[in-house]
Design a protein around this nucleic acid. Structure first.
Length: 319
DNA sequence: AAGCGAGCCAACCGCCCCAGA
DNA sequence: ATCTGGGGCGGTTGGCTCGCT
């Protein structure tokens, strides 16, 4: 017997969302919060599947989303994380505040993949493609089974930034076990998050920008990062914490983009509290207003690893 | 100006996971 | 221990836009 569909599709609308539908969904969710998604369309007066509503909200309407192309730093972060996690977009997205798994997946498929191929790197394995393979001493993450010229489909999932992946390649240890070996303080699915007292939230109105926006480290829950060289001239990294020290830009637009990065870095409870109790008091403001409101708040934490070396970054930047 | 193709991205589909009954 | 259903996730699709001919 087949699985029941998530909802009765008969009579339900599909395809692009209209502004009116968006408004209905926003109004309902801001007024009532997220409940059972299956019930949302009925309660909100939408002829949509609950799943469709959830996707529309999480990928497009959520107030803490950033829009626009991924920045250089974000792109590098995606590359690093993809080297660790493979195509686990939701996990990668959890490290990029304001970005959705769908957005990152799309950006990967349309931009980053091409860049990597152009510089001779296999986007699946993050290893040099056969034709562009450098001498062995330059190769990173060379697996014992690396003789195969074909891409190793599972390799990104099984590799580790420090290269101790022999057991994983043999199927004896999964990614989580490897992380535990390297850093037993947390499990792989416990993405290191900022503690509430480590979050610096600039005043909302007016948002007087500090000279630097540094997010404190979380040493006991950090990823086992190794080095943090960055080719970005505007980003320096704290030697001890391996976290970026962010300079606040002069122009308001860039500042807003930077400020908007932080909401997802907070622990869920705080995130919810901030969103619903502070930033989004009922009645709901127009979309543009609360987006601007959110973008004036919070900070950012990026996890860095040296999954890609400096030479690779330099090549990418030239493209 | 029209036709065509490539690129991009929002949205959908179907499977999987897991909490609760 | 098993079953069920909701939500999450990754892969894929389809339509829109833009540039080129």
């Amino acid at each position: 017997m087949g699985r029941q569909p998530c909802c009765d599709k008969a009579g339900l609308k599909k395809g692009p969302w209209t502004a009116e539908e968006d408004q209905k969904l926003i109004s309902f969710l801001l007024g009532n919060g997220q409940c059972c998604w299956r019930a949302v369309p009925k309660l909100a007066g939408l002829l949509r599947c609950g799943k469709s509503c959830r996707l529309r909200w999480t990928n497009y309407l959520r107030p803490d989303l950033r829009r626009g192309l991924l920045s250089e730093v974000e792109e590098k972060t995606v590359l690093d994380l993809h080297a660790q996690f493979g195509n686990r977009w939701s996990r990668i997205a959890s490290h990029l505040p304001g970005r959705t798994d769908n957005e990152i997946k799309n950006h990967w498929n349309t931009h980053i993949k091409k860049k990597l191929k152009r510089i001779g790197i296999d986007p699946l394995t993050h290893k040099p493609l056969p034709a562009a393979r450098p001498p062995p001493q330059q190769e990173q993450h060379q697996s014992p089974a690396g003789e195969s010229p074909e891409p190793q489909l599972q390799a990104p999932e099984q590799r580790h930034p420090e290269g101790d992946n022999t057991a994983a390649m043999a199927g004896n240890l999964d990614e989580e076990s490897l992380l535990l070996r390297k850093c037993p303080a947390f499990r792989a699915d416990e993405v290191p998050m900022l503690h509430p007292d480590e979050i610096m939230v600039p005043p909302c109105n007016p948002p007087a920008p500090p000279q630097t926006c540094t997010v404190a480290s979380t040493p006991t829950t950090s990823y086992p990062t190794v080095s943090t060289t960055s080719s970005s001239a505007s980003t320096s990294y704290d030697v001890d914490t391996l976290l970026p020290i962010l300079e606040w830009p002069d122009d308001v637009d860039t500042m807003r983009l930077m400020a908007g990065l932080g909401v997802n870095d907070m622990i869920p409870e705080l995130q919810s509290s901030l969103l619903w109790d502070y930033f989004l008091p009922p009645p709901p403001p127009p979309l543009a207003v609360y987006n601007d409101h959110l973008l004036n708040n919070a900070c950012v934490q990026y996890q860095r690893s040296d999954a890609f070396d400096q030479e690779t970054w330099n090549k990418l930047e030239l493209l």
